[in-house]
Amino acid sequence: MNGSATRVLIVEDEPPIRRLLRTSLASQGFLVTEAATGRSALAEIERAEPDLVILDLGLPDIEGSELIRELRNQGSSVPILVLSSRADEPGKVEALDLGADDYVTKPFGTDELLARIRTALRHRLQRQGELPLFRSGDLCVDLVRRIVRVRDVEVKLSPKEYDILRVLVAHAGKVLTHRMLLNEVWGGETDVQYLRIYIRQLRQKIEADPEQPRHILTETGVGYRLRAE
């Protein structure tokens, strides 16, 4: 790492979007480099070792998902933020399952994008030393003592409920696909409907209004996200 500025690589073939990302990120102090194709992106990642990659899924030469697969196969752990379009939930899920860290749906607001970038970068740092205590709003999870408190009142969770919450906390702020959660908690082989049932039970225990959840957010067609504040 040279200096303190965070280096972000933008992989996007549309110049207007590149320009938008470049100006808004540069204004926030990021060091921005750009690539218009998948191949030049691979070369740029090897050369400049960016701290984060913003990747458009619809590239002219290589499928975005292929690029993710290749990077992860090469052992790169650089956080990848995917730009995708609405109504392409299967594409988002595929990218996430292949190792992308999060996604933003076009058209997106700059504030949303920056929040996702910060989350992805935080997780990169956290990997070196995980925090034993998670706090967000009125929710507090003690991962060492396995205690969950809502508004300072301890909540009793079933083992499966706790497992789900633990996985969500570990990736707080990031989206987790249904498959990731099922793999982590059940070791795969379970239908998504069971996940929905447990999420509902979990919400009834930790949300002030389960019908209007503030902690566990539904990313329709993709998975769940635990809000991190």
Binding site: D191, Q193, R200, Q212, L217, T218
Partner: peptide, 13 residues
């Protein structure tokens, strides 16, 4: 892509 779900969850999102 049909699967079993709670309507309330979709209303919320």
């Amino acid at each position: 892509n049909m699967s079993l779900l709670y309507i309330g969850e979709i209303v919320a999102s």
